[in-house]
Amino acid sequence: MNPINFVILAAILFSIGSAAVLLRRNAIVAFMGVELMLNAANLALVAFSRIHGQLDGQVMAFFVMVVAAAEVVVGLAIIIALFRARQTISLDEPAELKG
C-alpha cells in the first residue's frame, strides 16, 4: 500500500484537530486539538520520509516533537496560571482581548 495514504490520514487528523480547536471551549481540550494537529504533521513528515527513502523527514518529526514538548510545558503552565487567576479554563472567559 502506498505510503501516500498515510498523508491522507494525516490530513484527516489535522482537520479533526483544527475543528476541535475551533469548537471546544475547554482550554485543555483545545490544546489537545493543537497536539493532534502537530502529530498529523509529524505523520505526514514520516510518510514523506518513507516515500523519499531519506531520513530527513524523520529528523524533522523528531524536532517537531521537541518543540511540541516545549510548547506543552509552557502552554499548560499558562493554563494553570489562567486557572489560578480566574478559577476557570474556559476559553470564552478571558475576553480581555476584546477591542
Binding site: 483544527s18 480547536v21 475551533l22 469548537l23 471551549r25 483545545a30 476559553l91 470564552d92 478571558p94 475576553a95 480581555e96 482581548l97 476584546k98 477591542g99
Partner: peptide, 18 residues
C-alpha cells in the same frame, strides 16, 4: 467599526487564522 472584529474570543481569532 473595526473594534467589533476584536470580540475578545480566542476561538474567533483561531477561526480567522484557519
Amino acid at each position: 467599526a473595526s473594534r467589533r472584529l476584536q470580540n475578545g474570543q480566542v476561538r474567533s481569532y483561531a477561526a480567522t487564522m484557519l
